[in-house]
């Protein structure tokens, strides 16, 4: 049985759709990457799963985690899911950790409040988990305050806190976006290692398709509030089945040659709320045909992939750095 199933999830704020019929499943221990540009709905999907939607947002559909229906769960059930079920790692640890409370206080909070674990025991576990995320002088760090730690160190504290409740799923919403590149690699390596060691399932939300492909088992690509392609990471880079995925891959700068100008996907990204009849990528798509403008495609199997495209079979393998979409 799947650990998490998201079934036909719609989210709207004030009547404007943000997410349109998002469905996917996650197996225990599986790592799923959700990739998309700003406004594609990737963070909103994470927030819906964590039930942390902004005020005024209405979610419909079904999200089932380990037998609990999250959108219908009461306070007590939700607290059980949050303590030991799903743990979150946020984008900016400096904003996600209360600046006026000590690191030790932050780490121990869940254990002390939810599980009534004593001060000394909570402290022992906090030190242990800090060592697990490779923080030196763990004992001394407990007394430190967030402003005394670097961003990378603080994100490791955040991960340590997420691990303390022994979750089955880690939901990481752009955990490396606020950090510099070398720190990013460290954080990803730690997350990866812990995930494998503990057999955790994870959802990694990012705008970096290659980073996601390198660290996840499966990739879900989102565009304008809907899933446009879901495919195993190892085949996605070689054989995308949605023109948007292909365009994302083409837009990455090549590692070996210099390009005069970085390629970009032509056109303006559509907002999830924009009313449009056919395919939501049609206005920017190089493969567009008449049918795309009138009929909205469903997420359908095509070879080893699930793709929301009428011409899924015709999508070409992109060349890194090539400006193949320049004709638009």
């Amino acid at each position: 049985m799947s650990l998490l199933t998201v079934d036909d999830l719609d989210v709207a704020i004030g009547g404007t759709p943000i997410l349109r019929s998002v469905s996917f499943a996650l197996e225990p221990g599986e790592a799923l990457g959700i990739v998309g540009e700003s406004g594609s709905g990737k963070s909103m999907t994470a927030r819906a799963i964590a039930r942390l939607l902004p005020r005024g947002a209405v979610a419909t559909g079904k999200i089932t985690f380990d037998g609990t229906e999250l959108l219908a769960a009461g306070t007590a059930d939700m607290r059980r899911v949050r303590d030991g079920g799903i743990s979150l790692v946020f984008q900016d640890p400096r904003a996600a950790i209360n600046p006026v409370r000590s690191i030790g206080d932050f780490l121990a909070e869940g254990l002390r409040t939810n599980r009534k674990i004593g001060k000394a025991e909570a402290r022992r576990r906090a030190v242990q988990v800090l060592e697990e995320v490779r923080i030196s002088r763990a004992e001394a760090r407990l007394a430190a305050y967030p402003h005394q730690l670097s961003g990378g160190l603080l994100q490791r504290v955040m991960i340590a806190a997420a691990l303390l409740s022994e979750p089955r799923l880690i939901l990481a919403d752009e955990p490396t976006t606020a950090l510099d590149v070398t720190t990013q690699a460290e954080i990803m390596a730690i997350l990866e290692e812990l995930r494998r060691e503990r057999g955790l399932a994870s959802i990694f939300i990012t705008h970096d398709l290659e980073l996601a492909a390198a660290t996840c088992d499966r990739i879900a690509v989102m565009y304008a509030g809907e899933l446009v392609e879901v495919q195993a990471a190892e085949t996605l880079l070689e054989r995308p089945h949605h023109p948007y995925t292909a365009a994302l891959l083409a837009a990455r700068p090549g590692m070996t040659e210099r390009v005069p100008r970085l390629p970009a996907i032509p056109g303006r990204p559509l907002a999830a709320g924009d009313p449009i009849e056919g395919c939501r990528f049609a206005p920017r798509c190089p493969l567009v045909i008449d049918r795309c403008r009138s009929e909205h495609p469903a997420l359908a199997p095509c070879e080893q992939s699930l793709s929301r495209c009428w011409r899924a079979a015709d999508v070409k393998v992109p060349e890194a750095g090539a400006e193949q979409l320049d004709h638009a």
Binding site: A50, L52, T75, M78, R79, R80, V81, R82, D83, S87, L88, F90, D92, A95, A96, I97, N98, P99, V100, R101, E109, G110, T113, N114, A161, S165
Partner: peptide, 25 residues
């Protein structure tokens, strides 16, 4: 603030999270 959401996401009861992270700050 995000840290209020962090507390909620860890299963801290809303009233306790309000006292510790909202009122305190």
């Amino acid at each position: 603030r995000d840290y209020f959401n962090t507390a909620i996401s860890r299963g801290i009861p809303e009233r306790t999270a309000f006292r510790r992270h909202v009122l305190r700050n």
